[in-house]
């Protein structure tokens, strides 16, 4: 077993939805989104409320696609990047579903999905939901600089997605199924540069992937794709190198949510996208639709998070990373 939980009666994906902002609307995955709003204020007065509004819209769309209302969900696992997870807290103030607030930075969607899968597969909930978001503007003003401040981004920095994704899991259904989950261990190989979070998170991604393949005894060949979350260009290259050092070759089937959401050649996003909403939106606009359509049969979704705060970064602490894994299969 190791770090991985395998489910005999796995949860099934009942429905999902994704919402994005302007830059996401200009990106290559635009067609897969349920709602794209070029006015990223979402009609609200503060960026924090804008993010909550976006998350609420995403939750409502996901429920509508399932044909249920909020009362039909037993438990919701949600989170975001704002201090004290306020975007989710304010969303849940309106939604009225029993709520478990999570923080794993950009890995939150995989964490929420994995927990929801456990609760449903274990019979503790009939239907459970995972919901996360990030908003570029709310993240900038909290983690970096005011939006009007003139600064140049380094080539390794990543662009926080303005996006939300939500998935409803059900105890019965026709799939895709969440067959196994691996909760990651916090990994830190000493990266301190907050403008290179991909490098900080890559060891965590590699560690979780190695744990899953060790625990499951499966071969990477059995999977159509492995999606890491938000490693970007630098982190993806490093994660692949780290896996290869341990004899795990994944290049052929590996893709990264941070590289899928934007076109780096056309859009100025540095090393790629990031944020709790990035992997969530890519999951709900790109990965799950392909599974539903049968274009993919078996994938691993491994979202990664950088677990520092602006305070610890100023105190010169290195950046701990985490990665949670969910195995999603049609059969």
């Amino acid at each position: 077993m190791g770090d991985t939980l395998f489910f005999e009666r796995p949860a099934s994906v009942m429905g999902y939805a994704s919402v994005g902002g302007k830059r996401e609307a200009e990106g290559p995955l635009a067609e897969g989104f349920d709602l794209l709003e070029t006015d990223t204020t979402f009609g609200e007065k503060t960026w924090e409320q804008s993010e909550s509004r976006m998350q609420t819209l995403c939750a409502e769309l996901a429920l509508r696609r399932c044909g249920i209302d909020a009362a039909g969900v037993d438990l919701l696992f949600g989170g975001d990047l704002e201090n004290q997870c306020t975007a989710s807290n304010y969303t849940m103030r309106g939604l009225g579903i029993p709520f478990v607030g999570l923080y794993s930075a950009c890995a939150t969607m995989a964490e929420g999905l994995a927990l929801a899968a456990c609760f449903v597969a274990g019979g503790l909930a009939r239907r459970a939901m995972a919901l996360t978001s990030s908003h570029f503007c709310a993240a900038e003003r909290q983690f970096r600089f005011p939006l009007e401040y003139g600064g140049k981004r380094t080539p390794t920095s990543q662009w926080t997605a303005t996006a939300a994704g939500g998935v409803v899991l059900s105890a019965d259904g026709a799939g895709p199924y969440l067959r196994a989950v691996t909760f990651g261990r916090v990994t830190d190989l000493g990266i301190k540069d907050t403008n290179n979070m991909g490098a900080a998170m890559a060891p965590a991604a590699a560690s979780t992937l190695l744990a899953y393949f060790r625990d499951s005894g499966r071969d990477p060949e059995e999977f159509d794709r492995i999606y890491t979350g938000d490693l970007g260009a630098v982190g993806s290259a490093l994660a692949m190198q780290l896996c290869e050092r341990e004899g795990l070759r994944l290049e052929k089937i590996h893709e990264d949510c941070g590289l899928l959401l934007y076109d780096r050649g056309r859009q100025q996003v540095g090393a790629g996208g990031s944020g709790a909403g990035c992997s969530a939106a890519v999951l709900c606009s790109h990965i799950l639709p392909q599974l539903k359509a049968g274009a993919l049969q078996r994938v691993l979704f491994v979202a990664t998070g950088a677990l520092m705060s602006p305070t610890t970064a100023l105190q010169k602490e290195s950046i701990p990373g985490i990665a949670h894994l969910v195995a999603i299969e049609n059969a």
Binding site: P155, L189, G190
Partner: peptide
């Protein structure tokens, strides 16, 4: 993973694109 911070630092330097000075 058996990897020292120094080794990883070297890998990171190689993987990270430099600023176009």
């Amino acid at each position: 993973m058996k990897l020292s911070k120094q080794e990883y630092d070297r890998m990171n330097r190689q993987a990270s694109p430099p600023s176009p000075v």
